[in-house]
Every structure is written in C-alpha cells, then in structure tokens.
Amino acid sequence: MRKTLENLGRVTLDTVKKLGRANLFLLHVLSGTLAILLRFRLLTAQMYSVGVLSILLIAVSGLFVGMVLGLQGFNVLSDFGAEESLGVMVAASLVRELGPVVTALLFAGRAGSALTAEIGLMKATEQLSGMEMMAVDPVKRVITPRFLAGVLSMPLLASLFSMVGVMGGFFVGVGLLGVDEGAFWTQMRSHLDFEDDIINGVIKSLVFGVVVTWIAVFEGHDAIPTSEGVSRATTRSVVYSAFAVLGWDFVLTALMFGED
C-alpha cells in the first residue's frame, strides 16, 4: 500500500516537473521567433522538410478518406432519398473534423517522429552541446525554426487534405454513384459557412500544429541521449501527440460547435 502511494507520488511529481519543463521550453523556443523570422532561409528549409515532404502522404490519405466518405455517405443518405446532400456531408466532415484531426495524426507520425528523432540524435551526438560551446543557443537556432515550420505547415496541410478529400468524395459520389453534380456543389456551397466551418477548421489545425510540434521538439530535446532514449522519446512523441490531438479536438469542438 505504502509502496503504491510512493509510486503514485513519484509519477505525479515527475509528470508535473515534466510539464513545467515543457512550458519553460516553449517560452525559450518562442523567444527566438523574431530572430528566425529575420533569417527566413532557416525557416523555409524547415518548412520544406516538415511540410513539403509531407504533402504526398497527406494528399493520398485525403483522397482515400474522401472516397470512403463518399461511399458511406451515399449509402446512408440514399436511404432517406437525400443523396443530393452528399457534397455537404463530405465537405463538412472533412473541414470540421477529419481534415484537421487526421492531418495532425499523420503529421505526428511522419514529421513529428522525425523531428523528435533528429533533435534527440543531435543531442546524443553532442551537436547541441557543441553549439552551446560555440556561443550559439541551440534552442533558438535549431528548435525554433522547426517549431515554427510545424505550426505554419499544419493548417496548409489540413486544407490540402480537405480539398483533396472533397475531390475524392466527388469522384465517388458523382463519378461512380451518379449523384447530381450541380446538387453536389450547390448544396455544399449553401450549407457550409466560411466562418463557422472553414475558419474554425483552420483554427483547429493551428492548435494541433502547436501541440504536435511542441510535443515533438520537446520530447527530442528532453530525450536521454542514448539510442534507447531517443527511440523511446520518438515513440512517446507519437503517442502523446495522438492523445493530445484527440483530447484537444473534443475541447475545441465543444467550444466551436457546442451551442448548435
């Protein structure tokens, strides 16, 4: 019994300490923002490796998700004779939920894990320490551009995901299942609201961008500098990101769409 309490206390203390470290770390990362914006090339290089290289994964996944939505939506809607509303259903699901959430989960798996591993290995091979001794703050020089790149890439990738997804739904619904093309688009346009749906979706993906990239860079920087430590940090990065994205999605959805 006493042992259990001791363990519980230790785990709680460790968690609180880690959260504290993560918050201080985020402040440190953000303090380098201005310097990185002035050295734009550092940011674009990271946007390439974090964002551009994720495009194929995001686009292909978006296409398939949209196609599945088209199929499933058609099955349900046609029972009620409402298959003309397929366009709204596909677009609303993507823009409000699946676009931001699935993009964030895929991003955590592809770019987040790579960030954690890269930073963890830089720590393990003394590259970060070496920078410190060269009087260069490794957090501002290495982490800040990666963090900003992740935060900026996420809404762009989520938008791409939703766009390609709508096209996927269109191919299946209109191309294969014979939904009226005009109804597909006009219903979508009349029922989707720019502010309520699209902007809220973008806000969601911005929040996910912060959360996922923050977890990824922090886990890398906080990793025990051995091969085992880096591998564990990479796993943690993906797992925590998934939990955080799904948890925050509930909170944000409740705040944004709760009153309807």
Partner: peptide, 30 residues
C-alpha cells in the same frame, strides 16, 4: 565562449552541413 574553442570527443559536427559550412558556422552566427 566566443573566445573559447572546444573540440568534442565525437567532433560534434553538424550533420546536415558539409565540412565548409560547419567551419563557417560560427562566422555566420557571430
């Protein structure tokens, strides 16, 4: 530290930069 050099056991070269850019790194930063 700008007046102190340190050679790490592993070298601690930045793996994403070539030799030239590694040596140029402190000059570009400072």
């Amino acid at each position: 530290r700008k007046r102190m050099g340190m050679l790490f056991q592993s070298g601690a070269l930045l793996t994403d930069l070539d030799v030239y850019e590694n040596v140029a790194f402190p000059l570009r930063e400072h």
